[in-house]
């Protein structure tokens, strides 16, 4: 089987991008934990990854600022979180939930990283032949 350099890391390359974006979204939630009226948001990971993998076939190019963006991994559809205990000021950020999600996202990011790392090490071993 010839080595396909375009797809060397498999799904993990896209997964990293989606996890990075998710981490950013959750960081934004945590930063706005005390902002009145802020609604917590998150990324639908499965949908975002499927989109990223499919490479958005038939996606239209956004050439002007007013164009609606397609769902690239850098710009997936954000969804609002269903609040367990919404506060009186309209804020739906739950610090515990967000911290847990952030930690989960970070762990999954590291898991993808270590898969990529393993692949690279394998490749290096093959190149060196030692």
């Amino acid at each position: 089987m010839p080595l396909d350099f375009n797809n060397l890391f498999g799904i993990h390359e896209q997964a990293l991008k989606v996890h990075a974006k998710r981490g950013e979204t959750i960081a934004s939630n945590l930063a706005n934990a005390d902002t009145p009226g802020y609604k917590a948001r998150d990324i639908d990971f499965r949908a975002a990854l499927q989109n990223a993998q499919a490479g958005s076939p038939g996606a239209m190019e956004a050439t002007q600022a007013g164009h609606i963006q397609s769902n690239s991994p850098e710009d997936p559809n954000l969804m609002y979180r269903t609040a367990v205990q919404p506060s009186v000021d309209g804020n739906t950020v739950d610090g515990q939930v967000e911290k847990q999600k952030y930690m989960e996202s970070a762990m999954r990011y590291q898991a993808s990283l270590s898969f990529i790392d393993g692949q690279l090490k394998q490749l290096l071993a093959a190149i060196r032949g030692q």
Binding site: I26, A27, M103
Partner: peptide, 26 residues
């Protein structure tokens, strides 16, 4: 306020660690 500040620091620290790991791939 101080709890929120701590949370921010931890989030930034985690992001930094992830970036460092990405930089030292392979």
């Amino acid at each position: 306020a101080s709890r929120s500040y701590q949370t921010q620091v931890e989030v930034a620290n985690t992001a930094k660690q992830l970036m460092m790991k990405t930089l030292t791939l392979g």
